[in-house]
Design a protein around this nucleic acid. Structure first.
Length: 103
DNA sequence: GCCATGGCTAGTA
DNA sequence: GCCATGGCTAGTA
């Protein structure tokens, strides 16, 4: 969290810098934005601003390396990740060591 | 009250 | 599985 920007602004900025082929977690973004406790606020930002800001929402996964969405959203997210070369193992998780974004 | 979280603990197998 | 967490929403009063 640099300077005067708000938590939400920091989250947007950070999300936009996650490159193709890499993933981040709700908690990682919250921590980098200055509040490690606010993983759920990151979810709020994703829900409300993904479309308008063009956020790479599909690159955000949970701390276990799994996709948290259900139903259609889940299918869409898995498809988008797959196009970037990321897929889940039989246990429904991906290798975070390999795919997690490191700023 | 709900939830696209996360971390920690009991308690099975 | 439990609970701290944070912000929004449906649905009463």
């Amino acid at each position: 969290m640099k300077g005067h920007e708000t938590f939400t602004e920091a989250v947007v900025r950070l999300l936009k810098s996650v490159p193709e082929g890499k993933v981040t977690t709700y908690g990682q973004i919250a921590a980098l934005a200055g509040n490690p406790q606010a993983a759920r606020r990151v979810v709020r930002v994703l829900c409300s601003l993904s479309e308008r800001e063009g956020l790479p929402w599909h690159r955000v996964i949970n701390s276990k390396g799994g996709v948290s969405l259900t139903g259609e959203g889940r299918k869409l997210q898995l498809g988008l990740l797959r196009k970037e070369g990321i897929r889940l193992g039989a246990d429904g998780r991906m290798n975070l060591q390999r795919f997690q974004w490191r700023p």
